[in-house]
Computed example of a mutant assay.
Amino acid sequence: MPTISKANKALFDLDLLRAIVVVADCGSFTTAAARLHSTQSTISQKVRRLEDMVGHRLLVRGNRDVLPTDAGQTLLGYARHMLALNDQMLEALAGARVGVTVRLGVPEDFVGGRTTTALAAFSRAHAQVKLEVTSGLCRDISQAYDNGELDLILLKQRRNAREGIARWPERLQWIDSAQAPTFDLDPVPLVTFPPRGLYRDDMIQALEAMGRAWRISFTSSSLSGLQAAVADGMGISLLPPRAASTAHRVLGAPQGLPEVDSYEIIIVHRPTADGRVRALADVLSELLQVQPG
């Protein structure tokens, strides 16, 4: 039987490997095409060329996203290594260090304090990583992740709304102004996030169950805006304990207000996430393990 020389073996095109890695990371051909500044049909063709080369199906479409097959998982591991070696070679030849970007999304009330201290420590320990942190409403963070714009997210949600690699219960408390309380007003003024924002429906349902009339007195997408509005006597709100300050008065059972325990905090990243993304997820897990609320 004739032998095949090493010179005649097929060589993998790094451009094809990069295409399948980005598709796997995004979970979508469409999002991968946008990230690679290409078209969906071009990305699909590159994946098919790889499948023809190896003789195996590499990706399959799931109910919500595109997932690698067993052969695809094997190829992705080698592909990431080959792409990393390519980057290291370019770095060595250029005489400059090539950074890796990790894009993190967190809710606004996790910006500052222990979170930024932990992120700063991570950056010092991983000098090659360029950390990009985006904060905002959880629904926007979730959408950005689904669009492939973020690699790792910390998310607050109703229990079991989506899967995560780790989860903790989210503590909430009712707050009023310490100097100009409003809970005894009729109707009760409410300070809330916009429609479909966290906790808004829970506040309304709780007051209606108490037989109290209510009105929306202040709406903002900014946590700091809600904190200031409550402190200045615009109304009551329902927020995590970490959002309360000495300018607020904590309400609860003495006022007939129920405990709201239907929320949780989760960490989400893709199964094919880079090792540095997983390392940052571990940092966030340790942070929440100490004090989730």
Rank of each mutant, 00 (worst) to 15 (best):
residue 28 S to I: 08
residue 52 D to C: 01
residue 93 L to H: 11
residue 45 Q to L: 14
residue 136 G to H: 05
residue 229 A to M: 09
residue 5 S to I: 01
residue 109 D to H: 15
residue 46 K to N: 11
residue 216 I to K: 01
residue 140 D to C: 00
residue 56 H to T: 05
residue 165 I to T: 13
residue 75 L to Y: 08
residue 142 S to W: 09
residue 112 G to R: 03
residue 215 R to Y: 02
residue 185 L to D: 08
residue 196 R to K: 09
residue 67 L to R: 13
residue 153 I to L: 06
residue 288 L to M: 10
residue 282 D to M: 08
residue 158 R to N: 06
residue 293 G to R: 04
residue 208 E to T: 10
residue 81 H to P: 00
residue 258 P to H: 05
residue 182 T to C: 15
residue 251 L to K: 09
residue 49 R to N: 13
residue 100 V to S: 01
residue 40 Q to C: 02
residue 246 T to N: 09
residue 80 R to H: 03
residue 256 G to C: 10
residue 193 F to V: 05
residue 36 L to F: 09
residue 209 A to H: 09
residue 80 R to P: 01
residue 80 R to K: 15
residue 48 R to C: 04
residue 34 A to Y: 06
residue 259 E to R: 15
residue 64 R to S: 12
residue 291 Q to P: 00
residue 146 D to I: 10
residue 231 A to V: 06
residue 202 D to H: 13
residue 234 M to D: 08
residue 278 R to S: 05
residue 252 G to H: 07
residue 157 Q to N: 03
residue 276 R to E: 12
residue 282 D to G: 01
residue 115 T to L: 10
residue 181 P to K: 10
residue 107 P to A: 04
residue 109 D to T: 13
residue 117 T to W: 00
residue 115 T to P: 07
residue 267 I to S: 05
residue 288 L to Y: 08
residue 35 R to M: 03
residue 110 F to K: 09
residue 102 V to Y: 01
residue 276 R to F: 11
residue 182 T to V: 06
residue 196 R to H: 15
residue 65 D to A: 13
residue 142 S to T: 01
residue 173 Q to Y: 01
residue 178 A to L: 11
residue 71 A to K: 11
residue 263 Y to S: 06
residue 183 F to H: 06
residue 132 E to Q: 07
residue 67 L to K: 12
residue 293 G to E: 12
residue 3 T to Y: 05
residue 260 V to F: 06
residue 162 R to Y: 01
residue 141 I to F: 08
residue 120 A to M: 11
residue 201 D to S: 13
residue 122 F to I: 04
residue 268 V to T: 07
residue 269 H to T: 03
residue 109 D to K: 04
residue 76 L to E: 12
residue 180 A to T: 15
residue 10 A to D: 04
residue 161 A to K: 08
residue 175 I to W: 07
residue 262 S to M: 10
residue 93 L to W: 10
residue 124 R to M: 03
residue 218 F to H: 15
residue 229 A to F: 04
residue 72 G to W: 02
residue 209 A to F: 00
residue 135 S to M: 02
residue 244 A to Y: 08
residue 33 A to N: 10
residue 195 P to A: 14
residue 31 T to W: 01
residue 148 G to A: 03
residue 119 L to H: 11
residue 271 P to F: 03
residue 273 A to Q: 03
residue 226 L to S: 02
residue 171 R to I: 00
residue 28 S to P: 01
residue 96 A to L: 10
residue 53 M to F: 01
residue 255 Q to D: 14
residue 136 G to Q: 07
residue 1 M to H: 10
residue 199 Y to H: 12
residue 36 L to S: 08
residue 12 F to Q: 07
residue 1 M to C: 04
residue 274 D to K: 06
residue 271 P to G: 02
residue 85 L to Q: 14
residue 44 S to N: 09
residue 128 Q to C: 00
residue 290 V to I: 13
